[in-house]
Design a binder for these strands. Structure first.
Lengths: 374, 374
DNA sequence: ACTCAGAAAGGAAACGTTTTCACGCCAAAC
DNA sequence: GTTTGGCGTGAAAACGTTTCCTTTCTGAGT
């Protein structure tokens, strides 16, 4: 009876003329047809160099016949690895992550890992939740890209023995979590330089639109701005820093606020490009022009930065490199190698386009027709 | 000796004062500590209503003590389900997918599934590859959002018995794959209506910038454009349709081509918003204005459409709804329910902003200062 | 021809769950 | 007091691999 069944299955595979069988084939079936043991079939799949050519051929033919595909569930279970890396980000669809994800994905494909996406846009989970997921073997490790910091409380990671593979990409961390490895630009330094560029152009009243309150990344950019302003002619002014909430709406509100100041800033530095886009929109809407009346400077160099009107001066990060290095570092951690705690800092650079210019002196104000670049 | 070991583990859990144990706890350890069988522990986890309150309490206490977390690998293996849904898209970071992914993720979270991302940007796999992945239990089902069609050849899906859970989101399909279920707007009809809107404004020479050659989705939009132009005063003109290659660069090239025509179009319909943004940029760069000289119409209503200069008139799709319905339909297929083959069509609508206007008669040409809307 | 080493293959355990089945117990019905 | 039924629990099988250990085979060296 049982043999009958096997025969049936086998014939099904042969007759259909296709690889797709309605009955799931297992390694056992392949072994039976090839006339070898299941261990040998397993070897053919995992270390073919340890098996005689003749047997290998027989097994391969059997696999062909049955349309056998190894059950990943069983394999992963046995190996104790999921082959999955969880990537936590705020939302798919934010242009900035395009390059980072490309880097991550490239390495992942290379090393045989798949990417599990977790969006924090709706719910805002704690770091602990992620640690639990790798504890319970839902993934082998975690990459955190989420801009809004998911670490609102002291986490178990600090009390724990720190063996859960986790790496931050782009993101900064609070001091008590500074031991979590990360790969990123020096946001503070980059923002400092960008602000100094505006100062060098001759701007004195420079506004800053911050990211979301919880984001450490943008907080560091804000610090960089303060650093630069400390040495500026007019010094630091609390009014010039407005919360843009990491959103288009927030940035527009912030811009309106800045424009309504008694002495309106002649330049606005936004913590990211998306807010810079919103900022430009709002400036234009109020009847002013960029950069003639107000210069705007962004951060990230997203794909739309160059086709804005005017094209956006911004700080560019090597996103793909960040993605690659983040993933490699995580994989090292997963393999059990010591990856240390120090952040890996990658190079940023300022790319000057048309949204920044020297401040307009009152006398030279007027209609100067700009030309958009190629 | 063996007992010794168990004791050691147990004490470790108790002494550390934390839930995180260096030695992995299994259901066996919990059972031993609670003084029950492993089946009972399993029941406590999966169907607590079938276990006496007292035992439940004992087990929960044991779980607490050990910091036990069920091994997802083993569980999924035993259940024969991965709890994973593979989402195939061209690239994370394309704003359009934001809403769709939110919808998918919402339902996924609700139903206890996780999302596996596969980007086709780099490699362009065949549908067969995806089918194989669910065959080999790497995921329970597949959602295909990839704009560039991943189906270059007749696929095994057509020859197969069609039991692999797969649903297309937004995407159209070629006729030979028309039996793959999908959730989307009626792209052809939507494009038809959008084009007719331009015609009604008085435009006669209307250009169209297509998506990538392989994309069926944008091909349908092109068809809709043709449908409308058939009835237009000047009729259809081959020159007016240019390949924008689904990219910023491609759209800019296409726009230059259209603008250099002997009789330049007074309106350009782009197969998606991103290309429309590039189109607007290029029009401005050539010294013309939108919409005074050339109207521009997009498709998708991505998050930046409203803060363009000018804000973009475009076709909006209910992206979150599409995501939700796509996911629900896939889950139904995974559960083995018959979901049919007919596409689920959702509502689109045209949202009119400032990038479209009646064509400028030669006489009224001049500097009319527009105001950006709130 | 005989031994022996190394290669190739087979047997069986193990991974951590879930689930089926059977058993024991207690309460209610006779 | 015996039967019946149902509830709570335990024992053990099963899921499909990989891997360790053992056995068998092969060919070269004596």
């Amino acid at each position: 009876m049982r043999l009958q069944m096997k025969t049936f299955r086998f014939c099904e595979g042969l007759n259909s003329g296709s690889h797709w069988c309605s009955v799931k084939m297992s390694i056992k079936d392949v072994a039976k047809i090839a006339g070898v043991s299941i261990s040998t079939v397993s070897r053919c799949l995992n270390s073919p160099e340890n098996v005689k050519d003749k047997t290998l051929a027989a097994v391969q033919s059997a696999i062909e016949q049955t349309g056998y595909a190894p059950n990943a569930l069983a394999r992963n279970f046995r190996r104790g690895k999921t082959g999955l890396v969880m990537v936590v980000l705020q939302s798919v669809g934010l242009p900035f992550w395009e390059g980072v994800m490309r880097g991550i994905n490239g390495v992942a494909r290379e090393e045989g890992y798949s990417i599990l996406i977790r969006e924090t846009a709706s719910s805002l989970p704690e770091l602990d939740d992620y640690l639990k997921m790798v504890m319970s073997k839902e993934a082998d490790g975690i990459i955190i890209l989420a801009s809004p910091s998911p670490f609102s409380s002291a986490s178990a990671y600090s009390t724990q023995d720190r063996r859960t593979p986790i790496v931050l990409g782009c993101e900064n961390v609070t001091d008590e979590l500074a031991h979590i490895p990360s790969v990123r630009v020096d946001n503070r330094q980059a923002a400092n330089e960008a602000t100094r560029y505006l100062l060098q152009l001759g701007h004195e009243r420079i506004g800053f639109i911050t990211g979301s309150r919880g984001s450490l990344l943008t907080r560091d950019r804000e610090r960089g701005y303060w650093d630069a302003m400390k040495t500026s002619p007019l010094g630091q002014h609390r009014d010039w820093v407005v919360n843009g909430d990491q959103s288009i709406e927030g940035a527009r509100r912030a811009t309106r606020k800045l424009l309504s100041l008694a002495e309106r800033p002649s330049a606005i530095f936004c913590a990211n490009d998306e807010m810079a886009m919103a900022c430009i929109y709002e400036i234009k809407r109020s009847g002013l022009s960029v950069p003639e009346d107000v210069s705007v400077l962004g951060f990230d160099d997203i794909r739309y930065a160059a086709i804005m009107d005017p094209p956006l001066t911004t700080v560019v990060q090597p996103t793909e490199e960040i993605g690659e290095r983040t993933m490699r570092r995580l994989l090292n951690a997963i393999e059990g190698r010591d990856i240390g705690e120090a952040p890996e800092i990658v190079e940023h650079r300022l790319i000057v386009r048309e949204s920044t210019a020297p401040p307009q002196s009152e006398t030279t104000a007027g209609e100067k027709r700009r030309e958009l670049p190629v």
